[in-house]
């Protein structure tokens, strides 16, 4: 399946806006992402392992929190998982790649 990476986290994916992972559930997909990009963990999860409260995972157009099976929902290769912060910020988003000073 495809995981869409929000702009501020693309610094960790060499600017890729989407990465492909093999997974049967949302949890597996996220685990595969964290295995490939360990820096994501502190951005997505609190130190006690909960998804940070402004972070939303969308399976296609559905908020994973509200799916009947939540993060254990099954995923297909054609599905897209998006990581979307609950707000977009009042500032400009991070420029993918080279940080400008």
């Amino acid at each position: 399946m495809t995981i869409e990476i929000p702009t501020p986290l693309r610094v960790y994916t060499a600017n890729q806006s989407a990465v492909a992972v093999d997974a049967n559930t949302v949890t597996e997909a996220v685990s595969a992402l964290l295995a490939r990009y360990p820096e994501f963990k502190k951005h997505l999860y609190t130190p006690d392992g909960k998804l940070r409260s402004f972070v939303n995972l969308y399976l296609n157009d559905e908020d994973v929190r509200y799916l009947p099976q939540g993060e254990e929902s099954a995923v297909q290769p054609s599905d897209t998982l998006s990581i979307i912060p609950s707000i977009a910020g009042g500032g400009l988003a991070v420029q993918a790649g080279a940080p400008s000073a």
Partner: peptide, 19 residues
């Protein structure tokens, strides 16, 4: 403190397009 944050309205200048 980081580019990925929940502080609505604010920017992380080190990594943002600077106004």
């Amino acid at each position: 403190d980081s580019p990925f944050h929940g502080l609505e309205g604010l920017k992380h200048m080190a990594t943002a397009i600077v106004p």
